[in-house]
Structure formats: structure tokens, C-alpha cells
Nucleic acid binder design. Structure first.
Lengths: 232, 232
DNA sequence: TGCCGTGATCTGTGATCACAGTTATCGTCG
DNA sequence: CGACGATAACTGTGATCACAGATCACGGCA
């Protein structure tokens, strides 16, 4: 019995099916913007380059289609959806509210360890944004890491998952834009806003955290909308 | 050319794959509570009763698992997840905020036709809640119809989709409870709150609409939590 | 009587084949 | 030389088969 009890100490082993791995792979490509709106995919080609059969790809793609991260056209073509200008505006509004809620909850519920993670990612982002020639891929990941460090600290996993779905939709647009306008990283207001968010969460000021994160999202969205690369 | 132009007038024909139909079927069973938490499913049995192969069921189930509307246990069993008490509380908080946002947006953006739909569903629900022996299945559908009539009127389809995902999670719990406590329909405060929400949306009072819908959600959640049928 | 090994059975996962519909390519006709 | 039409290649969808792992029931050992 003691032996059994010993073995049951760390049993949360989670099985990773091939479908899960393919899903995670494509998802990362989308959020980081390496798959741009309009890009076309095919089950067989993806299966080929990933060295698996078509089945796991089908499973992963069906999930991404359900998230509207991919779409299958009436002609049975598979592609990254083009985001209309209006939809991007709406998503910014929704994200400001939902991610603001997560930030407010984080200010109230964060643990000390989570606060440390937030501070670390904030510092990384701040230092990177001051660099003269920043690595864009790393900057994108830094920004994402900071935001999700905040959201994870909310203690609301269901909310984090919803936000993840939103990022999956806007990721291709945001990161494609950042790649074309690298100066936004330095001239934009992201870094000081992140610092203020960290301060608000540290002091437990929920409403301030909510407003700052919402402002960060609106700022990025307004910048992209001003560049007007979106159809409609 | 004129013939082609004529044909392209109404081409938004949407193909319904078998997978889509299976997904819609299971989804309806979940939201209406006919599949209760803990219920077990199997790909082959579902495929059998629906008269299709296993493939469309796999496609549908993989989507529902991605939504956390179903879960596949480490033992490769497929079942409706049990909702923990804490998670249900968190979901109520999230829903109050998100669905409140949708209601507020509906107060500002609803069309006249949408307002009519909201009023019609409100009346249906009000009459039904006064019935001495109401049909519970119909009551559940009425409540759902009213809420989503409001949310559709927000003009934010992405937000409606998020809310749909939330209802998919809480549906089994809420409707299972309503089935066991039918008196909630008459004694609860749902009907007057719905009426007040309709009034707020009619007059364009966004903040009042937000608060009323949030109160409706919290009221139902508190009732269920007081019954304490949830684990943990 | 209580416990554990062992087989049959059922599970989701992955691969392979078949098919209808679309797209792209190229040869041919006007 | 340009436009049309047929054919070949490719698309997602669905069905069927194969397999490893897990559950369950039965039976034998202690």
C-alpha cells in the first residue's frame, strides 16, 4: 500500500496525441503571425511536412476551424481568414473588456509567485523595446508572455482560455502589422503601459489594472487601424 | 454576363457536412441539459444511433472536446465533464461580465426588428412562467431564446460565439438543476428581470441593461449554488 | 471468503482507401 | 493570337481497417 501511495504522488501524466501536437504547432504559427491572413493550407501538405498522416491534421484543423482561426471556404479550400476592418474594431472592444476583467481579477487574486512572473516578463519586454534593433519574433513572444502572465494570475482558467481564442483570431493581423511596422515597438506606448499595469497589480488596484490593460489593447488596435491595411 | 450576375445574387449557400450535423445535435443535447454531467458517450454508439460512420462523430466530438463541452479522460473514456463548485462560481462571474457587455451593446445597437424579437421572446417566457404546470423543456428553450435574442442584437457576432461557448459549459448544470427544481421558474426573479432588461434595451439604457442581465445570471447561479448539488 | 491474474471486449487514435467536387493546366479550335 | 473545353491533379469528406491501451467479468489460488 505504501508503494502504491508513493507511485500516486505525481500521476498527472497527460497524453499528447499527434492531433494535439499538430494543433499546438499550427496555433503557434498563427498567434506569432507566421501564418498571415489569406495564406492557404492543405491537409495533405501539412501532414507531409510534419511527417504524420492526414488524420491528426484533420483533427487539429477541425478544432481551429471551430475557433475561426482557420476557415474552409465553400470551395473546400483551407485558409487563414481575412479580417475585415469592422470585425477587428469589434474584437478590440471585446478584448478591452474581457482582458480588462482578467487584469482586474489578477490584481485581486495574484499569488506572489505569479506577481514575480509578471514582473520578470515586464522587465524583459521593457529592455527589449529599448534595443535599437529588436528581434521582432522575440518581441512578439515577450508581449504575449507578459499579457498571459497577467491573465493566468487572474485565477480564472476559463477566462484565460477565452482570451486565448481571441488572440488566435487577432494574432495573424497584429503580428503581421508589427512585422511591417517595427518602429511601433519603440514609439508605441506599450512598454510604459505594461509598467503601469504591473504597478497596479502589485498594489492590488483592480480598476486601474483594468483600465491600463484596456488602454494597451485599444492603443495597439488604433495604431493598426490607422495604418489601414485591412479590407472593407 | 447578366445571367452570371443574377446567379451571384444569393450565393451564401452553406454546406452542411455530416460532422456539422452531428455537432449541432450533440450541442443541442448539452445546452438543453438532456446530457447530464458524468454521462458517458462512445464514438461508435453515437455513430450507430445517428446512422453515420464513426468519422463525422469524431470530427464533432473533437470540436466539443476543444470547447470543454466534452472531455476525454486519460482512460480514453468520453464523458460530459463534472463541474466543480468553484468553477461554476467563476463561470457565473465571467458570464455576468461578458453577457452584461452584450446586453449593454444591444441597448445601443439593436435594430427595430431585433427589438421586436426580444420583446416576443420576453412575452413568451413571461406567460410560460405564470403557467401552473409549465413544460420545463420549453421553459429552458424560452429562456435561452430570450438571452440570445438580446445578445444577437449586440451586433457583435464574435461576442455571441463566446457566450455560446459559455452556455455550452454551464448548460448541463443549469438545466439539470431546473429539471430537479421546477419551482424556480415561478418563484425565481427571472421573469421580472427579463422584463426590466427589455425596458432598458428599448430605452437605450446600456448600463441598466448590463446590470439587469448580470443580476439575472447571478440570481440563477446563486440559486443553484444554494442547492449545493455540485462537488468540491 | 477475499484477492489477483487473465482473457474477452470496448475505447479512442492513426493510417489507408474511395469519392465527389473544384482548380489548374494545356492542347485545340476559331 | 486569344478563348474555350477537356483532362489531370488536388481538395476536403467519409468509410473501413488496424492497433495499443484500458475496463470489466470470470475463475482460480490463497
Amino acid at each position: 500500500m505504501s508503494a502504491i501511495k508513493a507511485l500516486s504522488s505525481a500521476p498527472p501524466l497527460e497524453r499528447q496525441t499527434l492531433g494535439d501536437q499538430v494543433y499546438a504547432h499550427i496555433r503557434k504559427l498563427l498567434i506569432s503571425g507566421r501564418l498571415a491572413p489569406g495564406d492557404k493550407l492543405s491537409l495533405r501538405s501539412v501532414a507531409d511536412v510534419m511527417g504524420v498522416s492526414m488524420m491528426p491534421v484533420r483533427e487539429a484543423v477541425s478544432r481551429l476551424v471551430a475557433d475561426h482561426a482557420l476557415e474552409v471556404t465553400p470551395n473546400r479550400a483551407l485558409r487563414v481568414p481575412e479580417m475585415k476592418r469592422r470585425q477587428f474594431q469589434d474584437l478590440a472592444l471585446i478584448r478591452a473588456e474581457i482582458e480588462g476583467l482578467a487584469a482586474a481579477s489578477a490584481a485581486l487574486n495574484r499569488t506572489a509567485a505569479q506577481l514575480g512572473t509578471i514582473a520578470a516578463t515586464e522587465q524583459r519586454f521593457r529592455l527589449l523595446s529599448r534595443t535599437t534593433n529588436p528581434d521582432l519574433v522575440e518581441a512578439v513572444e515577450c508581449n504575449q508572455a507578459f499579457h498571459f502572465a497577467v491573465y493566468e494570475a487572474s485565477g480564472l482558467p476559463d477566462l484565460v482560455e477565452i482570451i486565448g481564442g481571441l488572440w488566435l483570431k487577432v494574432g495573424p493581423v497584429i503580428n503581421l502589422d508589427l512585422r511591417e511596422n517595427p518602429e511601433r515597438l519603440a514609439t508605441g506606448s506599450a512598454a510604459p503601459l505594461h509598467a503601469e499595469a504591473l504597478a497596479a497589480i502589485t498594489s492590488g488596484d483592480a480598476e486601474r489594472a483594468r483600465k491600463v490593460i484596456a488602454a494597451d489593447i485599444r492603443g495597439a488596435a488604433d495604431f493598426i487601424l490607422s495604418r489601414n491595411r485591412l479590407p472593407d
